[in-house]
Design a binder for these strands. Structure first.
Length: 773
DNA sequence: GTTTAGGGTTAG
């Protein structure tokens, strides 16, 4: 009987209320206070017309005044009624009536109207009850005895009494859980295993389109209450699944902690009996606890462990489609060196000043696959918990004594892998916040870079960095957020890493420019010397056989054969590749040549777009041996990797010959012929010195570092002069070392096999010479 | 109205 009009006096009625119901005053109504056993009494000062919500539900609003003699707005409170209760009340409530209400929930007032900061919410679904004492009492006889049921009586089934095909209400302690994740269907999914005093386990598979409707479990041992969960048999075991009207409450499992349900629902019942059930379960859990995954902080991690980490997000960045970087800290220092994941400066989200400040306390966590979506949605500053995080120790091959740790949240949801955002009012968050606030960050701050005070704006730091870089003759093309590391620190580390350094170029090798140009296979990384073209004359001659007249009819070529009688019986065949069966202008034409000498080829390569030396094998034209250049263009010879190429017959060029937009560029031709093109690169050793130590770093670069193409430098006077000027600026001969310019460089360390030994080497990357040099 | 997952580590 949710709404009842009293026939007797209010006093008389109140004596019939159960003892456990206590009157509560407006001043004691606060958010979070347990109102299960409270009633409130007030007079109706306003009653609004009945309306309907968007979902069709009836809605009725009343303003109640606590004290009859007061006219202050602060003495009034809004009461919101929903559903059938709203409809029923609206018929019988009048202005001036006194109401006694119980079974309400208390929420933050939705309107800023100067009334009480909370509002009372009631609906018959949650067992709310309203007693109305009319302003003009009925003249009927004495009051009847009224019995109140504040809440509908829910019964809870012990887990050892479950039967398939039933819908029940359950209480249990969480033994295992997967935080809500996006399922492959349309809903969020959370798998929760609960256990109760009967020591029976139940795996519950919960789905809901609304993440907040799933239980807000943050750790094993939390207590849950499920209403309307369906029990069914699966694989010979009972299983719980969400059914219509499923609702969950979650409680902290700590003995003695306030019994406050976690839910986003505004309407739920919660009785003294519920409280007792939670408290009983807490005590049972405490004495039957089985330690599962440890919750660790960064300072207590062990190599190879999986653990739950509670931390704050400081920065985030995409790594690639399948992984995402989270920079987090928990205020403790990881005892092992940990990896730093290289991302583009522009991709790193977060306060760069703070990221820099905390760099020695944060760790880089890479999350994969299904976790990327959630990771992206996190806000910098969020307090999060990552479950089953993997602290993976890595040692370079053959170096078990040196190790560093990588943090991975691997893909999948096995073992509860996942991330949750913890609410700011969670006990663990409050504790962590207090701890983080208590830290003296200066103790951990790095000292290599001019430190910015927290009140400095990002702009100030930016311009400060600019001034700092002004003196450098190099420019970093990415990762500007990296801090400078001292050379001796780098030398002392045995971990493959990436660093930013600031140093001077003491010396470099080789001194002669032509010695610094090599050929690099981008696939197998083999470096080789650039051959001397004059060596090829014999090779080219040796392949010069009398062209086979049968092979001269090539579909995409116009061919001519020259007899060169002045040189004995030498024959040269030239095949002009046609485009759409048409000859092109010589400067656009690709030609293939059989039996040409080095002189012929060099001469022709100045006139034509490109030349491919070939020979006849039976009826086919094939490339020569890959020890000679397969393609000649202007002054440049292009080579294929003898290991990685899989040369095809020249006929495979026909596909290019019919393409309208195909160009006779070395890369295109190489690809069509199955050739892995060798790259011309500068290979130099720079001895870099920053005052704390010197290290030798290799430069292997095609054109980015000097902004000069290595392929052309040997045939261009202008490029050679540029190179000379640059090297003279970086490392002038006979200059006092103090006068040398600064170079800011990225270098990475990596292990190379040197015989049976592994040796740490350093290479320069993402760095270029400043334009004005 | 159905499907999702149905606990038991990635292999980066």
């Amino acid at each position: 009987m949710p709404v009842e009009v009293l026939k007797g006096t209010l006093q008389g009625f109140k004596t019939s209320l159960p003892n456990r119901l206590q009157k509560v005053d407006l001043k004691h109504l606060r958010l979070g206070c347990n109102c299960a056993n409270k009633y409130f009494q007030g007079a109706v000062v306003i009653s609004y017309p009945l309306t309907r919500l968007e979902n069709g539900k009836a809605f009725f609003k009343i303003v109640l005044q606590e004290s009859e003699n007061s006219s202050s707005r602060t003495d009034t409170i809004n009461m919101l009624l929903f559903g059938k209760l709203a409809e029923d009340s609206e018929k019988v409530v009048h202005q001036g009536d006194t109401l006694v209400v119980a079974g309400f929930s208390l929420t933050k007032s939705a309107s800023e109207d100067g009334r009480h900061c909370c509002q009372l919410e009631m609906s018959d679904e949650t067992g709310s009850t309203i007693y109305i004492c009319p302003k003009s009492p009925c003249t009927a006889a004495a009051s009847e005895t009224v019995s109140i049921s504040v809440a509908p009586k829910y019964t809870y089934t012990p887990l050892n009494h479950l039967k398939g095909g039933t819908v029940v209400n359950l209480y249990g302690a969480v033994k295992f859980f997967k935080p809500p994740y996006v399922s492959k269907g349309t809903d969020y999914c959370s798998v929760v295993t609960i256990v109760d005093q009967s020591d029976t386990k139940l795996v519950c598979t919960l789905f809901n389109a609304n993440r907040d409707a799933l239980p807000k479990i943050y750790k094993n041992g939390d207590i849950v209450r499920f209403h309307r969960i369906k029990v069914q048999e699966f694989n010979g075991q009972m299983q719980g699944v969400t059914s219509n009207g499923f609702a969950a409450l979650t409680f902290d499992g700590t003995v003695g902690a306030p019994v406050v349900p976690r839910t986003t629902s505004k309407l739920f019942t919660f009785t003294e009996e519920d409280k007792k059930t939670v408290e009983d379960l807490r005590i049972w859990v405490a004495s039957n606890s089985s330690n599962s995954v440890p919750a660790a902080n960064l300072s207590s991690i062990q190599p190879q462990m999986f653990f739950d980490l509670t931390c704050q997000l400081v920065g985030k960045a995409k790594v690639d489609g399948a992984s995402y970087l989270l920079k987090v800290w928990d205020g403790t220092k990881c005892p092992f060196p940990s990896w730093k994941v290289l991302v583009k400066e522009d991709d790193l989200e977060g306060d760069s000043v703070l990221i820099n400040q905390l760099k020695n306390l944060t760790v880089d966590v890479v999350v994969y696959d299904n976790h990327v979506q959630l990771a992206k949605s996190l806000k910098v500053g969020n307090f999060i918990r990552m479950y089953s995080l993997h602290a993976k120790t890595q040692s370079p091959e053959g170096k078990p004594d040196v190790s560093y740790v990588q943090f991975h949240l691997h893909g999948g949801t096995g073992y509860g892998r996942g991330i949750t955002v913890l609410p700011e009012n969670h006990t663990d968050v409050k504790k962590l916040k207090a701890f983080l606030d208590s830290l003296d960050l200066r103790k951990y701050a790095g000292s290599e870079i001019p430190s910015a005070e927290p009140e400095d704006s990002y702009l100030t730091l930016g311009s400060c960095l600019e001034a700092y870089q002004e003196l450098s003759v190099t420019v970093l093309t990415d990762h500007q957020h990296f801090d400078v590391t001292a050379v001796n620190t780098i030398l002392n580390s045995r971990i493959p890493q990436q660093y930013r350094i600031r140093a001077k170029l003491r010396r470099f090798e080789p001194k002669k420019l032509h010695q610094s140009i090599k050929l690099l296979c981008p696939q197998c990384n083999l470096l080789q010397e650039v051959p001397d073209v004059t060596e090829f004359d014999t090779l080219l001659q040796a392949s010069a056989t009398r062209p086979n007249p049968d092979s001269q009819n090539i579909p995409f070529c116009e061919s001519v054969v020259w007899d060169i009688e002045s040189q004995g019986s030498r024959y040269v065949a030239v095949h002009f590749v046609t485009r759409y069966e048409l000859l092109q202008e010589p400067e656009d034409s690709l030609i293939m040549i059989e039996g040409g000498t080095l002189r012929d080829i060099l001469r022709l390569s100045k006139k034509f777009k490109g030349i491919i030396p070939v020979r006849s094998v039976e009826d086919n034209l094939v490339l020569l041996d890959l020890s000679v250049p397969f393609f000649w263009q202007g002054n440049i010879q292009y080579y294929g990797c003898q290991r990685c190429s899989d040369p095809k017959a020249v006929a495979s060029l026909s596909a290019l010959a019919v393409q309208q937009n195909a160009s006779w560029e070395p890369t295109t031709i190489a690809e069509a012929l199955g050739i892995v093109l060798l790259q011309y690169v500068f290979v130099m050793k720079f001895t870099l010195d920053d005052g704390t130590g010197t290290l030798d770093a290799y430069l292997v670069d095609a054109e980015n570092f000097f902004q000069i193409p290595a392929s052309e430098v040997l045939t261009s006077n202008i490029f050679q002069e540029d190179m000379e000027r640059i090297m003279n600026k970086l490392c002038p001969t006979g200059r006092n070392p103090d006068g040398l310019p600064w170079l800011e460089c990225f270098i990475k360390s990596y292990y190379v096999k040197n015989g049976r030994e592994e040796q740490l080497s350093y290479q320069i990357f993402d760095t270029m010479i400043a334009e004005d040099v």
